[in-house]
Nucleic acid binder design. Structure first.
Lengths: 148, 148
DNA sequence: CTTGATGCAAAGGATTTGCACAAAT
DNA sequence: ATTTGTGCAAATCCTTTGCATCAAG
């Protein structure tokens, strides 16, 4: 079994849940695709393997709870992305208003700047920050070019 | 009529829509409450004045479209807050995982820092950023104290 | 009058839940 | 055997829509 799958299997079992065939199939799809997928999209990929929609929902919310995936909500729909192996508490997404595509913004320097600002917020407001979601909305590179 | 209401009335009419009693009532509730309200909460405040739920939804999406309110989505539900008179493209919200309350974080210095980072992202990725939503998740002041 | 806005109820889409059955320990 | 997970269908929640009616210009 793949290293990633194995270590996540261990995590799931350590938390007291069974690592079933369904969880494995869904996990493998998440690893394979490495973008944000919603429950319906994942269901479409796995339904031929006799996995029900409810199981997809239940599995994703379990994965989310124990920190295997990160959930982001776009226009009322939950999307999930693998969190392990990039376990920063920071997620910057860019959504294009023209083509609706969602781009990940990832840059070490930016991440550092954001984390610094967060520490400032923690101190000023006496809160603990566990997780940071940043959603930027605008026009993407492609659409900018297409509208010249 | 209140200054705020009047200038928003003008905006609505300039866009070619009628400033009806329903729109006024909903607008006044938004001005009064100055927090994030979802459609249901607004409906509860105005239903006694014979305003239907569909009208609340239609009004809020119109308001959102012409930039009177800003929509933020929390756990699959849309919340709205007045955007006028604070027309920064930046919104920092903090959600507490214990009590689920949502706090606005507003600080000029922070805002400047964020806007600077955004300019960096725009340059590096060749995108235009219109709007920035930042959602911080963690433990709030009150809940920190309550769990000592 | 004519057009756009509203209220209601019905429809829609995403997600959750109840329950009987299957799988695992 | 006992517990946990699954599949299906029904239920639920939020939101949108169709349509007859109302209101404003």
């Amino acid at each position: 079994m793949d290293d990633k799958v194995l270590s996540i299997k261990n995590l799931i079992e350590r938390k007291g849940y069974k690592f079933t065939k369904q969880k494995r199939v869904i996990l493998e799809e998440l690893i394979k695709s490495n973008t944000h997928l919603n429950s319906k999209q994942i269901y479409d990929k796995v339904k031929d393997r006799k996995i029900g929609l409810a199981t997809v929902y239940r599995t994703l919310s379990l994965f989310s709870e124990i920190g295997i995936v990160k959930e982001i909500n776009i226009d009322g729909v939950s999307y999930y992305e693998l969190k392990m192996y990039s376990k920063k508490p920071l997620h910057i997404h860019f959504q294009c208003v023209k083509c609706n595509s969602i781009i990940d913004i990832d840059d070490n320097n930016l991440n550092l700047q954001y984390l610094k600002i967060c520490r400032e917020i923690e101190n000023k407001n006496n809160v603990d920050i566990y997780d940071i979601d940043i959603m930027l909305v605008g026009i993407c590179d492609k659409c900018k070019k297409a509208y010249c």
